[in-house]
Design a protein around this nucleic acid. Structure first.
Length: 540
RNA sequence: GCGCCCGUAGCUCAGCUGGAUAGAGCGUUGGUCUACGAAACCAAAGGUCACAGGUUCGAAUCCUGUCGGGCGCGCCA
């Protein structure tokens, strides 16, 4: 890659690293280069001198003076000056031309280019996977928004990603489900551990209309699940979630994958029999007790089937299996991790992301959600209430490992206060300016030579940070960082808009330069929102 | 009892592979539309970063302990 095509920030940071490594005689050293916290501290700052202080046994500020001189020599005209501050930070002050060139570079590529990660992986992200015995809840919506945004982030940072929903279409839950439908068809209450929701009545109605018999539980189970999956698919689609596949638990048996999976565990030597059941010795890999794969009745456990499913994911060529699980499943993680570790031969990294709970607050009261009792707010209701964009933002803006309260009254009544509109508004405003510029703009001159307002510097620095933000958010599995980033970009844009006229701006190349900056800002907001699955409207 | 998550502004939460004066939104108070969108901007008020030790030139961030809250510990799924 030629110097001129590389990321402008990357050029700075490699110059700093080169100089610091030379001085330290250590090629491993990687000093930080971060945007300065305040304008008087320059544009970018490095802690390189402080990192060298220990190894070299000299005061950091003394080292900083030498480093700064070398950095100036290395960077030449791009650099206006350097200053040494605080305990030994070197602050870099960049010239106007650097900012204009950086903006022009980004304009050429629709925003800053995200370089692919050094070690791209094939990753399969499994998320939602809610039982197909009822509609998706708002809590499932959090899983859906998170898993979807995480997948987009991982893909953006250079990984090869597929997404999957595991459909638990076997087992006792489904039997209860079928029994509940049957009871409703007979005009009776569902059984004790059955499903109470009104949607069961609707299913019963539909079953009757399509000629199902209440006593054919087998068939009711299959069709009932089919209908639910149909509905779930629709809800996810409506919510903007890209699911590459819905993987049926039953198909594991039909395709003989359960036997194969358990055979692989057996081959690895950690399977044993006791009390008539088949066990996996997960305690060999850090679990606190061993786990049953096949019950003494001969039935395969949920865990046994799920292990087979995960083995299949590995055999499909994935390097990393990410499961997005609810907090109530975190006890499950150790045994699955153990199962994957116990395998020999073809292996993959298993990683669980635990979602904490979401409490819906209505009328100041937390609503306790239970699917069986039918006491739920569905994802469809939530999106109908506050819209897909607002719902996704609400569900994504907080770290996934934290419990959140979602105040429905607030979301409904004050939805215009939702920060998502702040970001979307900035985008719409930019598009409006660009439309006007296309109509009236006459900006001549060389944009690269135009002066740069302080508010422009802050905005350009934010836009340049996009690749680093994407990589960090992906690496930390933290899409909520993109919400914060998008908000920052919007704020920086609004400040720029306050201080700088765009269309009709005076000065050689100034209008052209600012139009370009608007263009790059719009593209960056669009891409950020895109990662979150949120629309970027041209007007609102 | 053991394990996982969490405790930061009045409220909801960012910041956590250590870095300069700890941030945002909402709420409160006051100010901005004769430049391109006021769904915006500016200013003010508001903090023992749960508590106590420790490591460090430097701790909201790392370690240990305590207190408080949530979740989980099935031949259920």
């Amino acid at each position: 890659m030629s110097e001129s095509l590389r990321d402008p920030v990357e050029r700075l940071s490699s110059a700093v690293a080169t100089v610091a490594r030379r001085m330290a005689g250590n090629d491993e050293l990687s000093p930080a280069l971060d945007p300065s916290p305040r304008p008087e501290m320059g544009d970018y700052s490095t802690n390189a001198a402080m990192m060298l202080a220990g190894p070299l046994g000299r005061p950091p500020r003394e080292i900083a003076a030498e480093l700064a001189a070398s950095i100036e020599a290395e960077l030449g005209a791009a650099l206006e000056k350097t200053e040494i501050a605080g305990p030994g930070f070197i602050n870099l002050f960049l010239g106007n031309a650097w900012y204009r060139q950086a903006t022009a570079d980004m304009a050429g590529t629709g925003g800053a280019t995200v370089p692919p990660v050094g070690d791209p992986e094939r990753i399969i992200v499994e998320f939602v996977s809610a039982n197909p015995t009822g509609p998706l809840t708002a809590a499932s919506g959090r899983h859906a928004a998170y898993g979807d945004a995480l997948s987009r982030l991982l893909a953006e940072s250079g990984h090869q990603v597929t997404t999957e929903y595991y459909v638990n279409d076997g087992g006792t839950q489904v039997e209860n489900f079928a029994a509940s439908i049957a009871a409703r068809m007979n005009g009776e209450e569902p059984p004790e551990d059955g499903y109470q929701g009104t949607y069961v009545n609707e299913l019963a109605e539909r079953a009757r209309a399509e000629g199902h018999e209440a006593d054919d539980l087998e068939r009711l189970a299959v069709t009932g699940v089919e209908w639910m999956v149909e509905g779930i698919r629709g809800s996810l689609e409506n919510f903007g979630v890209r699911m590459d596949d819905f993987f049926s638990e039953r198909s594991l048996y039909e395709d003989n994958l359960v036997d194969r999976g358990i055979a692989r565990l057996r081959a690895a030597g950690h399977v044993f029999e006791e009390d008539g059941a088949v066990w996996l010795r997960t305690t060999d890999f850090g679990d606190d007790k061993d786990r049953v794969l096949i019950r003494s009745t001969g039935e395969v456990t949920y865990f046994g089937a799920d292990v087979a499913y995960h083995v299949d994911k590995i055999e499909r060529g994935n390097d990393r299996l990410i499961d997005v699980l609810g907090a109530d499943h975190h006890g499950y993680v150790a045994r699955m991790a153990a199962a994957i570790q116990s395998l020999e031969g073809d292996k993959a990294e298993f990683e669980a992301q635990i979602m904490q709970l979401i409490h819906l607050v209505e009328g100041g009261q937390r609503t306790k959600m239970s699917k069986r009792a039918g006491d739920i707010v569905t994802l469809d209701e939530l999106t109908a209430d506050i819209g897909v964009d607002a719902a996704r933002w609400f569900l994504l803006q907080r770290s996934h490992d934290r419990t959140i309260d979602l105040d429905l009254d607030l979301a409904r009544s004050q939805s215009s206060d939702n920060p998502v509109y702040y970001v979307q508004y900035a985008h719409a405003r930019i598009r409006s300016i660009l439309r006007k510029a296309a109509d009236e703009g006459s900006g001549g001159g060389d944009p690269l030579a135009a002066p740069v307002d302080p508010s422009e510097k802050l905005l350009v620095a934010k836009l340049l940070a996009f690749p680093a933000e994407v990589h960090e958010a992906a690496a930390k599995r933290a899409p909520h960082r993109i919400c914060a980033y998008a908000t920052d970009v919007a704020a920086a844009f609004h400040a720029f808009y306050r201080d700088c006229q765009v269309v009709g701006a005076e000065g050689d190349g100034v209008e052209a330069a600012r139009v370009q900056l608007c263009d790059v800002t719009g593209a960056t907001i669009r891409r950020s929102l895109g990662l979150l699955g949120i629309s970027a409207p041209d007007s609102m």
